[in-house]
């Protein structure tokens, strides 16, 4: 019942992840998917889907961009392509896409993913009534609320259990604008911003064709709290490798697969949880930090 969903940064990594035991690959291309480790070509999407299906695994494709008129026209042939390829599901964040799928009789199951805007069971159920087979929850939801959501939703909901959290999406090229103002070129290195009163913070920031994206100062790691998620009935778990590259990401995914297997049987012990967690921390990129995000926050303290 636990479903592990992971991003992939290459065809090879996608295959490694499938072989390792990931249930669903979450991939896509640049124009319609948001904040993916890599933009796959249509050929690659096809190859990965075929490989996953040959191993009885699933592929979910990101179609969760905010679409402007030009994109909403181009998305129809893309959806038709995805249907032909036979991907198992897509994420959608723009209701225009839902409207179009109905109009064009495109029947790919969709998971509603409007990022920060999905925060309650009743919202999820609204989209379920309009055909969504699931929803991706916002990252700003404390466990107390996750429990309430888990007990009321009519379709499964997904949460991030490992990886970076986007906390700001602007259509403006905020870095380019800044460096234009200072008359310097945008550095090619990874960039971080720090809060004025908290110089230790290090929010990742980058630009792409969708605009500018800012990520939380700490990446999320819920490994110590997986049993609570199972208890709350929230068992679709995403691991996002946008900032955790290469083999380290695959190894971290393997640790979560081990956790999943232990939780599914009766092998989940404190000792195992601690050992897996230590290894996640050890494999996590040295230049990044981890915490539990909003999971342990008191709902009354964030209003």
């Amino acid at each position: 019942m636990i479903e592990l969903i992971t991003t992939a940064e290459s065809v090879d990594q996608a295959k490694l992840l499938v072989s390792a035991g990931v249930d669903t690959l979450y991939i896509g291309e640049e124009q319609f998917g948001l904040r993916l480790p890599i933009a796959f070509s249509q050929d690659e999407l096809q190859e990965i889907t075929a490989f996953a299906h040959a191993h009885q695994k699933r592929v979910c494709v990101a179609v969760n961009a905010l679409m402007h008129n030009d994109m909403i026209e181009k998305v129809v042939p893309y959806l038709a392509f995805l249907q032909t390829v036979g991907v198992d599901s897509i994420t959608v964040g723009d209701p225009g896409v839902i409207h179009l799928m109905k109009k064009h009789d495109i029947t790919i199951p969709y998971v509603y993913d409007a990022q920060t805007l999905v925060t309650s069971a009743r919202q999820v159920n609204f989209w379920a009534k309009r055909g969504a087979v699931g929803a991706v929850l916002a990252r700003e939801i404390p466990f107390e609320e996750l429990k309430a959501i888990g007990s009321q939703v009519t379709v499964p909901v997904e949460v991030l259990v490992y990886g970076a959290t986007c906390i700001h999406h602007s259509k403006r090229p905020l870095l380019e604008n800044y460096f234009n103002f200072t008359k310097e070129t945008v550095p090619s290195e990874d960039l971080y911003i720090s809060e004025p009163k908290k110089p230790d913070t290090h929010y990742s920031i980058f630009e792409d064709s969708h605009g500018t994206h800012v990520f939380a100062t700490n990446d999320l790691n819920l490994l110590p709290h997986l049993a609570s998620l199972v208890e709350a009935g929230i068992t679709q778990w995403k691991l996002d490798g946008i900032f955790t590259r290469g083999n380290n990401f695959v190894e971290i995914v393997r640790l979560f697969i081990e956790a999943k297997r232990a939780l599914a049987g009766d092998g989940w012990t404190t000792a195992l949880q601690e050992s897996l967690n230590e290894r996640v921390i050890a494999l996590h990129p040295k230049e990044r930090t981890l915490d539990t995000g909003f999971f342990l926050k008191d709902p009354n303290n964030v209003k």
Partner: peptide, 14 residues
């Protein structure tokens, strides 16, 4: 808003 309205939780996190 400089972000897409609604698509910003800087305030929540900071």
């Amino acid at each position: 808003c400089i972000s897409y309205s609604g698509r910003c939780t800087l305030s929540n996190h900071m």
